[in-house]
Amino acid sequence: MTILKHLIYKEWVKTRWFASIALLLNLGVLVYIFMSLRSSFLSAGGVTYLSALLTYKTQFFSIYRYIPLGIALLVGISQFAPEITDKRIKLALHLPLHNLRIIYTMVVYGFVLLALCMIPGILIFTGLISIYLPAEITLPVLQTMLPWLLGGFCAYFLIAMIAMEPVWKFRFLYLLVSYKVLSLFFMHLPIGNAVSLLPVLCLVTCLSSIAPVYTSYRFNKGQL
């Protein structure tokens, strides 16, 4: 248990500043979106603003699209880049714990950190926009943003998978596959139309969460 605590502390030391930036970035962008919404709502009047929103299906929150991906890159790279530089992860893998446990302590730590960076902001944002927008608009807005959030989690798991891969040739190939997988999460779909894709995106995210097992095994066994 002490080893795990130390391991988590090591992860915290690596990621704390980047996670803080990610948290601020997430909150900043969401507050900015809310302020723009509030300003447009008050200046145009509720009826005019909502009519325009309903007619043109304006994605007033579109600036948020790549923020979860950016957060995943910040957390993922800050966590795994030091490990793959000079193969420092080998030190952690020599601890008297099962390697899978060590790897997944790192991955679950990153996942929780990512969730802590994104979810509170989204909850606050939902509460704030609900002051001005009815549920018929708030829910589709969240449904449209959900693929982007899932994309952030999926990106993090794929970063972990790529980081653990010992061979550069395969890292490059996984990068190509990851790019195509992530493009599914960030398609430019009209508001509300992504809801039918959510089960597939959840499945892909779950699948990507176990992907680091495969590459960490290869790393551990030195399967070049």
Binding site: L54, E136, I137, P140, P190, G192
Partner: peptide, 9 residues
């Protein structure tokens, strides 16, 4: 079929 806000004037 495409998404529509179930909110209309």
């Amino acid at each position: 079929s495409s998404f529509n806000f179930q909110l209309n004037p």
